[in-house]
């Protein structure tokens, strides 16, 4: 039995009438990567803000490394590192100065301060840029510096709130490499949130959160097994006829969306020949794919996360924000 490093019981957080976190309970095991997956506004950031002592819970309890997040704030803060969803660096300082500030407020002993700063900067490959003002860093470099900062005081738990939001796919990839690498090297627990379905797959366990409630919590594979097997998609002019025929021949209720008609079968490879041999309705194409977390989310909530649209819009917003901040920063 592994130790629970985060324990959350019946946690509720309200903002006026809005229930941002609606009575959730879960545990995170020491050393695991735990993912919070859900659309924008689901309550992921709010949960982190309660766990990191920035918000007081409306009701319920949460403990981190054995410390109560309301009554033992300082011990909790000492145990965690944070990469916030929104940027939180001092753009007017250089990388070293940002890390030095962090080392002081977290009480990293003088004897190891320099060594640790070098270690984390080398890890995120920013050592060569250490004396450059953060203002001149790209979005990806800033994110890496924030990750380095979050690790500087050797926290037990590292929170990563949408660590790749607003970054281009290549940089996203790069950031995940660090995170997975980190996991191999340190005995650290990682709590991450994302609304990118593909990214959630790196977690050992995932909680799917929607409208402030946890609707499922399991390993990615187990979640995917909630889908009956493989997903078959048919493209056809006559969707209604195809759906009727599938119901009649195989006893399966198919659904339709803009992509075509789709349904789940236990074993796609074996199913396709059966379908091809007997199907009467005209088909343009048949495709099969393994279930993704997208499908799981759709099945659980009846909605899609729409990560592409959301992702790009969010990316543009974030970028615009960086630009605006840089611009104003010059007069700050």
């Amino acid at each position: 039995m592994k130790r629970h490093i985060i324990e959350v019981e019946n946690l509720v957080k309200r903002f006026g009438d809005l229930v941002a976190v609606d009575d959730i309970s879960f545990n995170v095991e020491e050393g695991e990567i735990f993912g919070f997956l859900g659309p924008n506004g689901a309550g992921k950031t709010t949960t982190i803000n309660v766990l990191c002592t920035l918000f007081k819970p409306t009701s319920g309890r949460a403990r981190l490394a054995g410390f109560d997040v309301v009554r033992q704030q300082n011990q909790v803060r000492r145990s965690i590192g944070l990469v916030f969803q929104d940027p939180s660096l001092d753009l007017r300082l250089n990388a070293l100065q940002n890390l030095n500030f962090h080392a002081y407020v977290y009480g990293v002993p003088r004897a190891v301060r320099k060594k640790r700063i070098e270690e984390v900067l080398r890890m995120v490959e920013l050592w060569d840029r250490r004396r450059e003002e953060v203002r001149n860093f790209s979005g990806g470099m800033r994110r890496r510096l924030e990750i380095a900062r979050g690790l500087l005081h050797y926290p037990k738990v590292l929170f990563l709130d949408e660590p790749t939001l607003g970054l281009d796919p290549q940089t996203r990839h790069h950031i995940w490499d660090y995170i997975l690498h980190l996991r191999k090297r340190e005995s650290i627990t990682i709590f991450l949130t994302t609304h990118y379905m593909d990214e959630a797959g790196v977690a050992d366990r995932i909680a799917i959160i929607d409208y402030g409630k946890i609707v499922a919590l399991d390993t990615p594979d187990a979640l995917k097994r909630m889908i009956g097997g493989d997903i078959i998609t048919l493209k056809t002019e006559n969707a209604e006829a195809a759906m009727a025929e599938i119901r009649h021949q195989f006893g399966i209720e198919a659904q339709k969306d803009s992509q075509g008609v789709f349904f789940e079968v236990p074993n796609g490879e074996e199913f396709i020949p059966l379908l091809v041999n007997n199907f009467k309705t005209d088909l343009h194409s048949i495709s099969m794919r393994r279930p993704t977390l997208d499908d799981v989310f759709l099945k659980l909530t009846g909605r899609e996360i729409r990560e592409e649209a959301g992702g790009e819009a969010a990316m543009r917003r974030q970028w615009a924000m960086y630009q605006a901040r840089d611009h104003r920063g010059r007069f700050g």
């Binding site: 990191c52 920035l54 939180s88 660096l89 500030f101 407020v105 901040r325």
Partner: peptide, 9 residues
């Protein structure tokens, strides 16, 4: 600019 959060946590 978000830096206040770094101080407050």
């Amino acid at each position: 600019f978000g830096f206040l959060k770094e101080i407050l946590v």
